[in-house]
């Protein structure tokens, strides 16, 4: 029996009104596989995650999660949103425990699980704080905690490490990697960081700019625990991804040279004015 993938997208199209976002996107995510999506800003990465989470209706093509349409109750889903979406009226620990509460885990158990993740994420002492008293990076970690604490079958992460410093980012990467190795799950991980991509991804999907197609896919066989950021072949892959992203970069306003010309023109106009003024003053005198 062929192993059925956890998530499957085939020829998915999606648009908001006239704005065609996904043109044709197909990929699969295995039950214990990390798929990383990279792509230019605003192309449709978050949209893809929202489609998989069932928050947006699939307009065209087919999306399956656990062999059924998105929203399948058999698959426990953890989603770390790009805009976090913490509950401002709940303390840190209750936010982290939210997913567990939604699954009717007993209060004692969910608080002890939440506490464990709070400690792992370096938020000890802030359990009773409310989110709007925390820094951006701390709020982000609360969100990571909420997604991890549920021990989901499928984890969607939208730029989870974006507003933390370089060291904390490495620590969180390692933490993520450790947690995943202890209990592997299907992950779709969106990032702008190519290093993150090659360190975590079993598969890396590069998106084109809108309307999105899959531009390229990279497979990395080496187990995560054996990857180092300095490995030459990982760096090579990184370079390739960067090159592909560079091709998809937003077109610069046509171009700096034109602007220079404009600048010169404006200067000339100013000069003309100055001369004109000079004339008029000399006339009036």
């Amino acid at each position: 029996m062929a192993v059925e993938p956890l998530v499957g997208l085939s020829d998915v199209r999606f648009g908001y009104g006239n704005n065609q976002v996904l043109d044709s996107v197909s990929f699969e995510v295995g039950r214990e596989e990390i798929v990383v999506i990279v792509g230019p800003s605003g192309c449709g990465k978050s949209t893809t995650l929202n489609l998989v989470a069932g928050l947006l209706p699939c307009q065209n093509g087919k999306i399956e999660v656990g062999g059924r349409p998105p929203g399948n109750p058999d698959i426990v889903l953890g989603y770390m949103f790009q805009d976090l979406r913490l509950l401002p009226w709940k303390s840190v620990i209750d936010n982290v425990a939210f997913g567990l509460a939604a699954r009717r885990v007993s209060e004692n158990e969910r608080l002890s699980v939440a506490k464990r993740y709070i400690d792992l994420l370096g938020l000890t002492g802030f359990e009773k704080h409310y989110p709007n008293r925390l820094s951006g990076g701390m709020q982000q970690r609360v969100c990571i905690g909420r997604a991890f604490a549920m021990n989901p079958d499928l984890l969607l992460m939208d730029e989870p490490f974006k507003s933390v410093d370089a060291q904390l980012r490495l620590y969180l990467l390692e933490l993520f990697s450790n947690i995943w190795q202890r209990s592997p799950k299907g992950v779709i991980f969106v990032t702008h960081d190519t290093q993150e991509a090659v360190l975590l991804g079993d598969r890396i999907i590069v998106y084109t700019k809108r309307p999105v197609r899959v531009k390229a896919t990279f497979e990395i066989d080496r187990p995560q625990s054996m990857r180092k950021a300095t490995d030459p072949d990982l760096r090579d892959t990184e370079a390739q991804i960067l090159a592909l992203l560079y091709e998809e970069r937003a077109a610069l306003p046509n171009t700096l040279e034109d602007e220079d010309k404009e600048g010169v023109q404006i200067e000339q106009e100013i000069e003309c004015h100055a001369v004109g003024n000079g004339l008029s003053t000399s006339l009036s005198v």
Binding site: A53, G54, L55, P73, V76, L77, G78, Y79, F81, D83, R85, L87, K90, F98, G99, A101, A102, R103, M150
Partner: peptide, 21 residues
């Protein structure tokens, strides 16, 4: 709405969405 969506993706039952969101 985004908080409601968040609660829904975590499969929070309706009474919980009412109570907590």
């Amino acid at each position: 709405r985004r908080l409601v969506e968040m609660a829904r993706t975590h499969r929070a039952p309706y009474w919980m969405i009412v109570r907590d969101v």
